[in-house]
Write a protein that binds this DNA or RNA. Structure first.
Length: 404
DNA sequence: TCTGGGGTCCTAGGACCC
DNA sequence: TCTGGGGTCCTAGGACCC
């Protein structure tokens, strides 16, 4: 069975994949530049400003987690569990810091440099997480030593601890790195994957969140081992195409290759409104977000064919509206006018959060992102994207589309 | 416990085409 | 008159991930 393997493509049957996950990354960064925070509870909040109680927890250090603080929690709630040090110097208290993405990205760049040096192929999943194909850098007999080497280098050269998982597939490597954090190192050799996963809760499988987990529980599926032997047709009818895919993951079957990440498919900005009242404030915010996201697209060299808005009504009803243009454009004024137009139906509704999104992106001057474009596209992922904007005429794109 | 911001992928119905 | 099947694109929503 050739399984559609390209001629000359490497045999993917026995890869060694490493997953590297930086521990409590935002909090660790804060400690990097403020060593006095070491060993102290640290809470990093998004949408948080010093002294305020707005926002939500992005990352909490383990010392803060010990008191029940967890990510996605409202800052108000975290403050009840752990007040600010300034407010309660004697009892248990935490250091609160606002998210500073720019700084975190600069730290992440140092880590990524180490990873790229240690592996041929690196897929950066997020600011604090990456997959490495290290097949040609190590061997199963010494994989643990290689994992230690990775961890030690990140620690020595950047000053952060990481959790590392090594396994023959991406999904197993991910579960492995999750298994023993922080500062963890777990190696799962080929042939051990199924057994390693068997007793873990289904939520450990990438792609199973709260909704699917509870649906699975109703089917009597509670562990990854249960999922591995669950009735495929029942999974299909409950989860569509995703069902069999999740089952394969639970069985340790995953033939995705580690490839560098391609270009983004969408760009967006969103922000919460302090006061969900109908009126001009929300529209102003939409305008601001439109300008901001268009500016970002510009910096990234992206043109876009679809503009969308998001309006979240209390308690948490998400509405989206979008409009596609005849061809790709790069025009901030147009983004603003389309976005405000799409948002018009929410003018007299209470809205707690708004967003603006650009999609159907095209990168006219891009280097076609060499490999990323085609190896990055999994079979079945082909949406004809490139076919729809053939030869993207650099002059044609600037057509004024004010009527939209 | 009333929930931040930035993404990806999948589904489903309708328009439209052959 | 309404009988088929196949395909793409657009839009809205939902689950999930970090």
């Amino acid at each position: 069975v050739t399984s559609g393997r390209l001629p000359g493509a490497p045999d993917r049957r026995d890869r060694i994949v490493a997953h590297v996950d930086l521990d409590c990354f935002y909090a660790a960064c804060e400690r990097l530049r403020e060593p006095a925070l070491r060993g102290e509870p640290v809470v990093v909040g998004m949408g948080y400003e010093p002294g305020s109680d707005a926002g939500a927890v992005a990352t909490a250090s383990y010392e803060a987690r010990a008191h029940g603080v967890e990510s996605a929690q409202a800052i108000t709630e975290a403050l009840e569990l752990l007040p600010r040090v300034a407010d309660d110097p004697n009892g248990p208290a935490a250091h609160y810091r606002p998210v500073d993405m720019e700084y975190y990205e600069s730290v992440a760049a140092e880590v990524k440099a180490v990873l790229h040096d240690a592996a041929k192929t690196v897929r950066e999943v997020s600011v604090d997480e990456a997959y490495l194909d290290v097949t040609d850098r190590t061997d199963w007999s010494v994989a643990e030593g290689f994992g230690r080497y990775l961890r030690d280098r990140v620690e020595r050269e950047v000053g952060l601890t990481a959790s590392v998982g090594l396994a023959p597939t991406m999904s197993a490597a991910k579960v492995a790195s999750d298994h023993d954090k922080p500062d963890g190192l777990v190696v799962v050799e080929p042939g051990e994957v199924r057994e390693f996963l068997a007793d873990l809760p289904v939520e450990a499988v990438h792609g199973v969140g709260p909704v699917r987990a509870s649906e699975l529980a109703q089917m009597g599926v509670e562990t990854a081992g249960d999922l591995a032997v669950a009735d495929p047709s029942a999974l299909s009818s409950a989860f569509g195409e995703r069902g069999p895919e999740l089952r394969r993951r639970a069985r340790g079957e995953d033939d995705r290759e580690v490839t560098p990440r391609g270009r983004p498919k969408s760009l967006s900005r969103e922000s919460a409104l302090p006061d969900p009242e109908p009126g001009a404030a929300a529209v102003d915010r939409v305008r601001g977000l439109a300008t901001a996201v268009a500016g970002r697209a510009d910096r990234e060299g992206a043109a876009y064919r679809t503009v969308g808005v998001k309006a979240v009504e209390p308690p948490f009803e998400v509405n989206t509206r979008e409009r596609s243009l005849p061809g790709p454009v790069a025009d901030a004024d147009l983004v603003e006018s389309v976005a405000t137009d799409l948002f018009a139906e929410f003018h007299d509704r209470r809205v707690r959060k708004v967003g603006v999104r650009l999609s159907n992106l095209a990168f006219p001057d891009g280097e076609q992102s060499a490999l990323g474009e085609w190896t990055g596209a999994e079979p079945g992922d082909g949406d004809g994207e490139t076919d729809r904007t053939p030869g993207f005429a650099p002059d044609g794109r600037q057509t004024k589309l004010s009527e939209y």
